[in-house]
Design a binder for these strands. Sequence first.
DNA 1: ACTAACATGTAATCTGTTACATGATTGA
DNA 2: TCAATCATGTAACAGATTACATGTTAGT
Lengths: 181, 181
Amino acid sequence: MLAQYVILGLLMEGPKHGYEIKQIIERWSGLFWKVSFGSLYPALHRLTENGCISIDAGSGTDTLRRKTFRLTEKGEAVLRAWLLEPAEGTGVSRNNTNEFMLKFTFFGYLTYEERDKLIACRLTKVKKKLDEMEARREKIKNSKERPGFYAWAMRDLIIRSVALEYEWLQAVRQNQSDGPQ
Amino acid sequence: MLAQYVILGLLMEGPKHGYEIKQIIERWSGLFWKVSFGSLYPALHRLTENGCISIDAGSGTDTLRRKTFRLTEKGEAVLRAWLLEPAEGTGVSRNNTNEFMLKFTFFGYLTYEERDKLIACRLTKVKKKLDEMEARREKIKNSKERPGFYAWAMRDLIIRSVALEYEWLQAVRQNQSDGPQ
DNA sequence: ACTAACATGTAATCTGTTACATGATTGA
DNA sequence: TCAATCATGTAACAGATTACATGTTAGT
């Protein structure tokens, strides 16, 4: 699902073939996001049928039969629409392997106003989550619930990682005007 | 898959019924782990067939027909075995929504030696990952690759979150002897 | 000659979510 | 009485991984 948008995002730089896309994703982040060929190629086929990407004429006929995929105008529009809708979920979450992080990576393709608004929106959400988590921690502290050392420490790390995202977002917001691009 | 182990871990505290287990998971961490009924109940059935848990006699016959599940000796052994095998994957990763975190929560059921060994193992892995990531960042910095402000900032957050886990692990290792339990 | 990496693809499989169905209990 | 929550369960569906199949190219 998200794979499709990552493909579109990477093709913004220029045409690429499938294997290349996988390599970039791996390099660019063995970090928090992986794609297997079993989902990459079907995704490329779907996007081609959609008309979001096109296969460059002549490609696929060389000895390595590699196909060069190119972003279409429709694909660009679809990417933009996806980037502009605020991501659900905060911090270390289950499914959405941080949809926000994935979108964020491509924020350079938005205008300053657009991305600043998205970052502000995210900032509000993360702050709210952080407050909730800290309030919940206080509540547990003052109750008879005794969660044991390890459950408690786990909660501490989760809260701190959300706090880290919050501070990071603030710094990003400050610096984005100074940074390259 | 992981749901099964979480069930076993929670049943260590005492018998519970399904709905209760879901509530605990939600409370205990709307944080980074969720279970839907559609996976919880089938998991409970599988575990019952396995002989890892048993249904208390008489339960399921009251008006609310709720069933009380109890950990068996086999279930306890299966949980222990799972806790003792070092978790794969580091930090913010795709699938394993931090298998380590999930295991860590139940470390209280292991001996001091067992959990200290696991934490030490984790510490080594996280340090290695962190070093790799920092080296990669340096390499990119000194090359002509210019990833743009947002891709760069994304990388920064990922590295910092792994660094956070590293520092947290060190603190946990220091404090576990002092803490409760 | 052989191995590793390049390159694309499909099918079986697994796992989990969503949506539905059923019915009891509690409090407003 | 009505809504919310308690309580369990199934079936359809979506998504992704693994394993397999196929063939090329480059380096040792």
